[in-house]
């Protein structure tokens, strides 16, 4: 559990850490869009270089990124297998166990792989360098224009920040209950099927009970302090955009535009 890297914040004071969260979220969105622009090999090269640059600016180790990638490796492998078996364009490269593998399948798979990796790397840079709370402030602000279309921006942000806030608590709670049940002879690894079901139940039930309890306590505590979801609220933490934020955003927009140009020409 300690080794979860996906979505984890790594404290720091680098340029990337200090960027305005709204700018970071927008930049991430633009780069994610850029990934889906069919600008061929050079397009991906550009995005890869930008990502590596951001990684080194944020002083994140490559190892950390690989760790973040690990949980979704299985999904990627599945995707690749399906692709290789299904796509039948281009010419046959090899025949493997009676399956004909086409060149198109290889290309397609590579594209998917590169896209997925880049997407995860870019989102990891965002989440690793932005405090969860800042992230939600950013999301709230970016959603603010949609409030007039009845998008509950503040409520969404509050829900996200509560959810984020309680992830570590839930992990801790799970570990504690696992230990408590292990002391009572629960063995999640061994045992017959029926015993395993009982073992999982002994974990899930207390987890649910305490989560509901906690949700109720939190709701009461919020109400006791006068929280009203749709009331207008002031903020302790003020976000502001300065020169470095503008430069970064401009840079990212230029890349996006450049890639669109490339895509149009090829």
């Amino acid at each position: 559990m300690d080794s979860i890297a996906l979505g984890r914040y790594i404290p720091g004071t680098t340029l990337i850490h200090r960027l305005d969260p709204r700018i970071k979220i927008l930049s991430m969105l633009f780069l994610l869009i850029a990934i889906f622009i069919p600008a061929g090999f050079y397009g991906y090269l550009v995005i890869t270089i930008v990502s590596l640059l951001a990684l080194s600016l944020a002083k994140l180790r490559i190892g950390f990124v690989f760790k973040a990638l690990r949980p979704i490796m299985i999904m990627m492998i599945m995707l690749m297998v399906i692709n290789v078996l299904v796509v039948k364009t281009g010419y046959v490269i090899i025949t493997f166990l009676g399956f004909e593998i086409y060149s198109g399948a290889i290309y397609q798979t590579l594209y998917i792989f590169i896209r997925l990796v880049l997407m995860i790397v870019i989102t990891t840079i965002l989440t690793a360098t932005t405090k969860p709370l800042e992230l939600t402030l950013g999301i709230e602000d970016l959603l603010a224009p949609f409030v007039r279309f009845k998008v509950p921006a503040h409520e969404i942000a509050m829900m996200i920040s509560i959810a984020i806030r309680f992830i570590p608590t839930l992990i801790e709670e799970t570990q504690r209950i696992m230990k408590a049940q292990a002391s009572r002879g629960v063995d999640l690894k061994e045992g017959k099927f029926k015993e395993k079901i009982a073992a999982i139940l002994s974990l899930i039930v207390p987890l649910f009970v305490s989560s509901f309890q906690r949700a109720e306590d939190l709701a009461n505590a919020m109400e006791a302090r006068g929280y009203v979801p749709d009331a207008k609220r002031t903020r302790y933490k003020q976000l502001h955009v300065d020169t470095k934020d503008r430069i970064i955003l401009l840079f990212v927009i230029l890349i996006l535009v450049g890639l669109i140009k490339i895509a149009i020409f090829i």
């Binding site: 009572r184 002879g185 139940l201 002994s202 207390p206 009970v209």
Partner: peptide, 29 residues
């Protein structure tokens, strides 16, 4: 089985339908 450990906040480990069943959980395991 040799070393029984009661946790700091053991009230979180209860899950069975009845108290008797919950106490039986350990010995049965």
């Amino acid at each position: 089985k040799m070393v029984g450990l009661v946790f700091q906040f053991p009230e979180y480990q209860l899950f069975e339908e009845t108290i008797l069943k919950d106490v039986c959980f350990g010995p049965l395991n």
